[in-house]
Amino acid sequence: MGKSKNGMKLLVYVFLIFIAILSLIPFLWSIDSSLKTVKYNYAHPLSWRPKPVAFGNYVKIFTMFSFGKNFTNSLIYAGGKTILTLIICPPAGYAFARKKFKGRNVIFILILSLMMIPSQVLLIPTFLILKNFPLVGGNNILGVGGTGFLDTYWGLILPTAVTPFNIFLMRQYFLTLPKSIEESARIDGASEFRIYWQIALPLALPALTAISIFSFQGAWNDFIWPLIVLRSRNLQPLTLGLQVFQDENFDLWPLLMAATLVTTAPMLGIFAIFQKYFFRGVSFIGTSK
């Protein structure tokens, strides 16, 4: 009995370690490749030992693509979207969870049904709405004459900032808080806004962190929306900026790998700090359905 139990333990560990290696190997291999000179990589593409170790690649890439500019653009897109989400979604979720008002359930079900619309249906019309947005980007009041929000940060941020899903998640979280928390404040005569702002919102920190992380990550890693909305190179986020390496000569693998890893690093940094919230957030999504 004990022997078979140990055998079982060993088997489970071997399985997990094998999967862990599979998850990590593409990264390890790209790190390794990123440290080879282009010439050495061409001659010895399969060697795991870069000779000489070309740390210089990590300097060279900054002259090839405007990492700083791309990085700032990613930050503005992801940060802007997250801030807008945090301003708009939690109060809506709060009202749907904690308040009674006419049409509440009907409106909420309508919002939920919007969740079923795939974002690809929205690509073309949203592009047209941005292009014809009145009074911006050279447009007149009828939305004609200019390019509207196309090729601007707002064009990236506005259409993706508010999702039915984030409102739903906030509502589910506020539902779990006990009713009593607002009541004493209400008896003390606090205004509805103060109750929300000073009492309910601080208690919802875990849910707020979750929607922030996923909004940020979604925008940081987004590809298709910037691809459609942006024309100018100097507005491109990292995901689009990386493509310059594809336009170039394809033997530059070590440089492409270095650039790829550099674009991935910020997200890993955020994960290192907020790791607990990432896992909690995903678990929350999986169990609140």
Binding site: K100, P125, E192
Partner: peptide
């Protein structure tokens, strides 16, 4: 009064979803 506040809480979200989800779906 509470009801009025409730609508203020949901209005921004409704406006954004209307403009960037509902209307585009109909246009598409």
């Amino acid at each position: 009064l509470g009801e009025k506040y409730s609508y203020t809480f949901i209005m921004p979200a409704l406006l954004m979803l209307f403009l960037f989800v509902a209307v585009p779906t109909i246009i598409a």
